[in-house]
Amino acid sequence: MLQRFITIGLLITVFFSCETETIAKFEIENNTSTTIDSLRIVPNGYESDYYISLSSGQLKKYDCNMTDIADVDGDYRLDYKFVTSLFETKTFGYYTNGYPIEKLIRISIETDTIIVDYELNTY
């Protein structure tokens, strides 16, 4: 009887330990002379209240939790604003079936453009 409980316990543990979070990883660098007051990245069709700020020349890591999004394809939306401006939006990248295809996405915000560089996962 004890062995049966141990077996059931192990099966339940294995089943629940297989559940993992899906995280899209970003590195964002502010290469402007102005502080970015509010910046967020969200999958297409979703919202988030998680904002970061970046001083001039600062580099920060940003994780976007995609665990609860639908198993669909889409892109990312970058929303940001400088201290003295309105929000600007840029769509970029691609995810498939609710999972990022990149290991890391590097974003460089320049004075007049945004540069996005992708480091793909190897499968």
Rank of each mutant, 00 (worst) to 15 (best):
K60V: 12
T89C: 02
S53L: 06
P100N: 05
I8L: 14
V14W: 11
L86A: 10
V72S: 01
R77L: 12
T96C: 03
C18W: 09
L39H: 02
E21K: 15
I28C: 04
S38R: 13
Y94F: 14
L86D: 13
T84V: 09
Y51W: 14
E29C: 03
I105T: 14
I36L: 07
S56K: 12
V14I: 15
F92W: 08
G9R: 11
T84M: 08
N44T: 09
S85L: 09
Y51M: 06
G93W: 00
L104A: 04
L54D: 06
L10G: 14
L104S: 01
E27V: 14
R40H: 08
F82G: 05
I105V: 14
D68S: 08
D63L: 12
F82S: 08
P100Q: 03
R106N: 11
K60L: 12
F92A: 05
P43H: 04
R40K: 15
I52E: 06
S38K: 14
E102L: 05
L104R: 03
L54V: 07
Y95Q: 00
L10N: 13
V42G: 03
L104F: 08
I12T: 15
N97E: 07
I101M: 02
F16P: 08
L39G: 03
I41Y: 02
I8Y: 12
I69P: 00
S56H: 08
L78N: 05
E47N: 13
A24E: 06
F16I: 14
